[in-house]
Every structure is written in C-alpha cells, then in structure tokens.
C-alpha cells in the first residue's frame, strides 16, 4: 500500500498551560479531498500552523511523502522550507499583499521556484530575463485557470471579496504544491461564489493532481466535496470517516452539530 501523502502522528501543541492540540493523528491519502472540521476554537488552524511551520509542535511527527519521492519529516522546518517541499496554504483571514497587483501576488508564489539572485537581478543577463518572462507567463496561466485574468493588473485590495479568496488559491498554486491546505476558503462567500469554489476545488484535484485538505464551516460544501472527514474538538480528534459516517456519528453530533444537526 502507498504511504499517505501527509502523515501526522500524535501531534501535540501547548501554549503555556493550554493544550491547543492533544495527540492528534491524521493521515491524508494522495488525491483525496479531506476536510478538517470542528467547532470554533477546536484547534483546526493551529493544526495547519503546526504543519506549515508557523508553530513548532510541542510533540509529534509530521511526515510527508511527495509523489515519487521519499518520506521526509517537516517538524521544526521554517514555513518557507515547508512551502519549498510542496505544501501550499491559504489563510482564514485573507492575507494578500495589498501593495501589489494581482499578477505580482501570484508571481510571489513563484518566488521559491526561481533561481536568480541579487547580482543577476542588477545585471539582468539573458537567463534572468527568460526566467522572469517565464514567471510572468506562468503566473498569467494560473490566473486564467482560476478565472481571474481580467483583474491581472489591478491592485489586489481592489478585488471583490470572492475574487480575493480565489487569488489566495492562485497564489498558493503558483508554488507548485502537491498538497494544498485551504483554511475556510468559503468563509463570507455567497451561495453562487461557494458553488464556483466547489467546482474549482474539484477541478484542482482532477486536473492539477493535487491533494487537498480543507478547514470549513460550510457543512453543505464539506459534505458534498470531501472524500474523508476528520473531526476535532477541544484539541482532540473525535472522529474520522466518510461524510455519511460523520453525519451518523453520535460523538460528532454531540460535540459539533449539536442542536442544529438538521442543517447538515
């Protein structure tokens, strides 16, 4: 059997006396769309931050097995090295670079795949010019895929909200990831935008060969999209399974869906 693409074992994260994550183990298979759900403050974003190196976990193992490569540990790596290894993420509260155009935002994503240094930037030999030109066309192609090409030279802040969310995905895509972590991609979107996002995520998996792990509160989106769902509550993992399993799981209903279980 293939090794899981992301294998997190016994992950624990303490902030002083607070256990934000307590012995969480999650494995993601290649080509999956997996969801991580749980009530507010359950530790979902902390989990993302531990994987991507923004926090160093107190304990536990974070291993990745990129397609066609050997298993390696991510624990203790700085965020930029995690990205270099092929994990890209978006943020719950949109974190675009507002002083830049849409295209440049995507080009930032290309950063870690470009090699020209300072000297080359100043002297601009043909190799640097070609690389720069390629970065521009690559980024433009990504914008076309995501459907943002009409905004290419606009400042990122001037985009409509839904487009900003999509731009975050475009930017993450530009880093050439094999695993995409989406932190509440549908937050604040209207039903139409959510529908488009749903299509986009499926398209990304099928056409870009991506594995996707998403945190989301929109249950309709989670249930229709995910192959596998992990549920955390108070920093502990309480269940995992297919959407159907999760819907029927009494722990989950108790902890999370609670009284408004009819919505799901």
């Amino acid at each position: 059997m293939n090794k899981p693409i992301l294998n997190v074992k016994n992950l624990t994260m303490n902030f002083g006396g607070l256990k934000a994550l307590d012995d969480v183990s999650i494995a993601i298979e290649k080509g999956q769309i997996a969801a991580l759900i749980g009530p507010n403050g359950a530790g979902k974003t902390t989990f993302f931050n531990c994987i991507t190196g923004i926090y160093e976990p107190t304990n536990g193992i974070v291993e990745i097995t990129p397609p066609g490569k050997n298993t390696q540990s991510l624990r203790g790596l700085k965020p930029n090295y995690v990205t270099e290894r092929g994990i890209a993420r978006t943020f719950q509260n949109i974190r675009l670079f507002h002083g830049m155009t849409v295209l440049e935002n995507v080009m930032i994503g290309r950063h870690c795949r470009l090699s020209s240094g300072i000297i080359k930037a100043m002297l601009q030999p043909p190799s640097q010019k070609n690389e720069e030109q390629k970065a521009v066309t690559d980024s433009y192609e990504i914008l076309e895929k995501i459907g943002l090409e009409q905004y290419v030279n606009d400042m990122a802040v001037n985009l409509p909200y839904g487009a900003q969310r999509r731009l975050e995905i475009a930017r993450a895509l530009a880093t050439d990831p094999f695993l995409l972590l989406l932190d509440e991609p549908a937050a604040g979107m209207n039903p139409q935008e959510t529908k488009e996002l749903d299509d986009l995520i499926l398209w990304l998996r099928d056409n870009e060969n991506l594995t996707i792990l998403l945190i989301e509160h929109d249950m309709k989106l989670v249930m229709s999209l995910s192959d596998w769902i992990h549920v955390v509550d108070y920093g502990k993992k309480i269940a995992e399974g297919t959407p159907a399993d999760i819907k029927a799981n009494s722990d989950v209903i108790k902890a999370y869906l609670g009284e408004d279980s009819d919505d799901a």
Binding site: N80, A88, L96, F97, T175
Partner: peptide, 13 residues
C-alpha cells in the same frame, strides 16, 4: 505587506 503570508509563499524572511 504581510510577513506570515510572505513566509508561507516560500520566501526566506
């Protein structure tokens, strides 16, 4: 513009 997002994009801060 954003230090954390910048690192998450693979830039060595």
């Amino acid at each position: 513009d954003d230090e954390i997002a910048c690192q998450a994009m693979g830039i060595d801060k």
